Amino acid sequence: MIRVLFVCLGNICRSPMAEAIFRDMVCKENLADKIEVDSGGLGEWHIGKAPHKGTRDILDSKNISYEGMVARKVNVHDFEDFDYIIAMDDQNMKGLKDLGNANNHKATTGKLMDFIENPKEKNVPDPYFTGNFDYAYELVLEGCTQLLNYIKMEHSL
């Protein structure tokens, strides 16, 4: 099983959006028996809460399920439990490196936008602060599409 963890600051906007989008893609490509998806946050402000209303609204409009998703905090064990840990921005990458000693774990870590050739943005702007959930969705969708293509190629799926 290939395990993918999406990470943002609070785990209520971008990372659950990415988790839901990626899981939807994985299911539509009949890869759910090969790829498992989760998300987490670096902070603990929202632990146990559902995704942000803006995230829920955009996912609802696209008929993408987020059922059962609740915020959780990323922990040091995630670096051994997951194959890919995908951050939404540079700040998240720094937080992951501080948490997991990036050089001593099995997980491949990187930013979602790094999987896109010539991305519009280097980071997915946080809609919690910008209010622009549509733009975040656009970026996350493109990033997830390219990440899935990368994983399929790397693992011959």
Rank of each mutant, 00 (worst) to 15 (best):
D38E: 10
P16S: 02
D83T: 05
P51A: 15
S61Y: 03
I12M: 05
E29W: 07
K28S: 09
I12Q: 07
C8L: 09
K49G: 08
E138F: 08
D57N: 13
K97G: 09
C144S: 07
L157R: 00
E19R: 01
D89F: 06
E117W: 03
H52S: 07
C13T: 06
E19V: 00
L147R: 05
G54D: 09
L9I: 08
L148M: 14
T109I: 15
Y137C: 10
G41V: 09
S61T: 09
F129C: 11
D134A: 15
M113Q: 12
I64S: 10
K62I: 08
L99E: 05
Y66A: 00
S61P: 01
E67F: 13
A32Y: 01
E121T: 00
K106M: 14
I35H: 01
T55A: 11
D38T: 04
S65Y: 09
G40R: 01
H105C: 03
G43K: 07
H52F: 11
N75Y: 09
D78N: 13
R14Q: 05
P127W: 08
Y137S: 00
I116M: 06
M93K: 12
K122E: 15
S61L: 10
N75S: 07
F82K: 06
L141Y: 03
M1C: 03
A87P: 12
E29C: 08
A32F: 12
S39I: 06
G54K: 03
E67N: 04
G68A: 14
I151K: 04
R72T: 15
E121P: 11
L148E: 02
V70E: 06
D90W: 13
N104M: 13
I12E: 05
T130L: 12
A136F: 00
G95V: 03
H105I: 08
E29D: 14
Q146C: 11
K111S: 10
Y150H: 14
Y135G: 00
K73H: 06
L59S: 03
L5H: 02
P127Y: 03
D33K: 12
N103I: 05
D134L: 11
C13R: 04
P119G: 09
T55E: 05
L139I: 11
E121C: 10
K73C: 08
E67L: 15
I64D: 06
P51M: 13
C8D: 10
M88K: 14
G41P: 02
K73D: 06
A71N: 06
N30T: 11
N118L: 08
D57G: 01
N104P: 03
N63T: 11
E154H: 11
Y137A: 10
L147T: 03
L5V: 04
D33Q: 15
S156G: 08
I64K: 03
L5R: 04
L5K: 10
Y84S: 04
M17T: 00
S65W: 07
I21L: 13
A32R: 05
L9R: 02
G143M: 00
I116P: 14
K73A: 14
K62V: 06
K62G: 01
I58Q: 02
K120C: 04
L157K: 05
D57R: 03
F82C: 13
Y66T: 00
E142T: 02
A102H: 05
G43H: 14
M88L: 13
A71Q: 08
V124S: 00
E29T: 01
P119T: 02
